[in-house]
């Protein structure tokens, strides 16, 4: 198969970027999207060009490193997969493929298609945990957890932190990411203890990072490679409203850490 690729090239965070056109040929339909890009990069190295930088690591759809906004969709045209699991048979021979980095103020471009997603780490650092130390915890079976709660928590916890939700959102909002973490922990008795404080701290952090607001278009759910439901956003909103209305004054930030 052969393709025309239009790829965003940008030397570094401050440089001006542009879309550049490349041709690749001799691609097997069984190749993954990244193997196709590997081929392009091999050609570029051999011909004295600079290879295209893109984020990737596990190449089996779980680490969340890969990104790429392909033909107007994060992770490309196939639903429920990451870019690394996308195969060239999902395209038509001779196609022109547009490849861009995730676009959001909170995800600045580092080079070419690589963006900085440390904003997600900051959100988790703001409260995406249960405050227990190693040691001194009760036996694992002390608190029974209803199976359906545990399953719902697992659904939310399946988030791989890739940022497709932000990339797809017309407002570059990170509500699905944060909603998934808040939901995961709030659904479990272990996480419930500090749920009210957690949601307030995480939302406060989110607002500082320059993400947009949710307008419930649900593009995030449609593009999430793990199919995480927007019901998690609603659950977080409920948690947040409850926490704002009913938590005691002065209890939120000071005692947090």
């Amino acid at each position: 198969m052969k393709f025309t690729l239009k790829i965003w090239r940008q030397k570094n965070a401050t440089a001006k970027g542009e879309m550049i056109s490349y041709d690749v040929a001799g691609i097997s339909p069984d190749s993954s999207f990244f193997e196709m890009l590997d081929t392009l990069n091999q050609n570029l190295v051999m011909t004295g060009g600079e290879p295209v930088a893109f984020d990737h690591d596990c190449r089996e759809g779980i680490c969340g490193t890969c990104s790429l906004y392909i033909n107007g969709r994060p992770h490309g045209p196939v639903k429920g997969v990451t870019t690394c699991q996308l195969h060239m048979r999902s395209f038509v021979d001779g196609d022109t493929i547009h490849i861009e980095p995730w676009r959001a103020k909170a995800f600045p471009v580092i080079r070419d298609l690589v963006v900085d997603r440390s904003a997600f780490d900051k959100i988790i650092q703001a409260g995406g945990y249960v405050s227990v130390n190693t040691g001194g915890v009760p036996d694992a079976n002390t608190i029974p957890v209803p199976k359906e709660k545990s399953e719902a928590a697992m659904d939310a916890a399946a988030c791989i932190g890739c940022g497709a939700c932000v990339a797809a959102c017309s407002n570059a909002a990170a509500m699905l990411f944060i909603g998934a973490k808040v939901s995961h922990l709030a659904l479990l008795p272990q996480g419930k203890v500090e749920a009210a404080m957690r949601v307030q701290k995480m939302v406060a952090c989110l607002d500082e990072l320059g993400f947009g607001l949710c307008s419930n278009t649900y593009a995030c759910e449609a593009e999430c490679p793990k199919g995480i439901s927007v019901a998690n956003i609603a659950r977080m909103n409920r948690q947040f409203i409850g926490a704002k209305l009913f938590s005691e004054k002065e209890k939120t930030v000071r005692d947090s850490l």
Partner: peptide, 19 residues
Amino acid sequence: QNKSARPSPYAVSNHSETA
């Protein structure tokens, strides 16, 4: 605020399935 959350737009407009 939403507008400012994506200062540089995509070259290809979004094709994601939405409500």
